[in-house]
């Protein structure tokens, strides 16, 4: 899941300042799950903006809200074509992908980001999410006991812990476990410590030629069928 945080209200207020009619567009998938831009947050933001307007009067806006199931597929965006025709800007509470999908579908309209898209992660407990994957494009989790050092070690190093670890925690964040200690403990349990003793060469960043594209359909050479 993609995890994001709603932007501070004053930042959003500044962003929409010059647009009178604004559509607040929520996203019903990841952004709903991570409390950043689901229907409730759309509604909350709507209310907050209205209070800001009534209490400090920073411009007069008319807001609409709508929450799509997903913003990252263009077909869903067709559902708001009519509404979009009446507004001056779309404030997307989708992740960075949603904001861009809106921009692509409605080229004539400003598409504003309402959230800071942060990472790909999982739920730790209600309201707490942890990053788990850096989308490095070259997964080596089989060697690290299912614990990703690229994501969970602040330095993303591949050959074991640095010397900064203290009490099993990371030197950069005393609340965060040292990923390499976790890897070590799990490999030990799995009797696979030899995986840690192995030398891992520098990462291949060729796997991340941004922007990336994945094509899952197989291309078929039309000649082959007749050959």
């Amino acid at each position: 899941m993609i995890v994001a945080e709603q932007k501070p209200l004053d930042e959003i207020s500044r962003m929409i300042a010059s647009y009178e009619r604004v559509l607040i567009l929520g996203c019903g998938t990841c952004m709903t799950v991570c409390d950043a831009g689901g229907e409730r947050e759309v509604s909350f933001l709507h209310n907050a903006l209205r209070v800001a307007q009534s209490k400090i009067g920073n411009g007069i806006h008319i807001f609409w809200e709508y929450t799509l199931k997903r913003q990252c597929d263009p077909e869903f965006l067709e559902l708001i074509v009519e509404r979009v025709a009446e507004v001056d800007a779309v404030l997307s509470l989708g992740c960075g992908i949603g904001v861009q999908a809106v921009a692509e579908r409605f080229p004539e309209l400003p598409s504003l980001p309402g959230v800071n898209t942060s990472f790909m992660g999982m739920t730790r407990e209600t309201g707490v999410w942890d990053e788990r994957c850096a989308a490095c494009g070259d997964c080596r989790l089989e060697d690290t006991a299912g614990i990703c050092p690229i994501t969970r070690c602040i330095k993303g190093i591949l050959n074991g812990p640095c010397a900064g670890t203290k009490n099993g925690k990371c030197e950069a964040n005393k609340d965060m476990d040292c990923a390499w200690l976790l890897v070590y403990e799990r490999l030990e349990k799995l009797a696979q410590l030899e995986r840690m003793r192995r030398y891992y060469p520098p990462r291949n960043f060729r796997t991340i030629p941004r922007p990336r594209r994945i094509i899952s359909k197989t291309s078929v050479d039309p000649g082959e069928e007749y050959g």
Binding site: N159, G160, T165, N167, G168, W180, Y184, R197
Partner: peptide
């Protein structure tokens, strides 16, 4: 880091 509180992984790294 001979005084690391979890020494084993440090030793592995030392060998590497």
């Amino acid at each position: 880091h001979p005084e690391a509180d979890f020494i084993e992984p440090q030793l592995i790294k030392f060998e590497k």
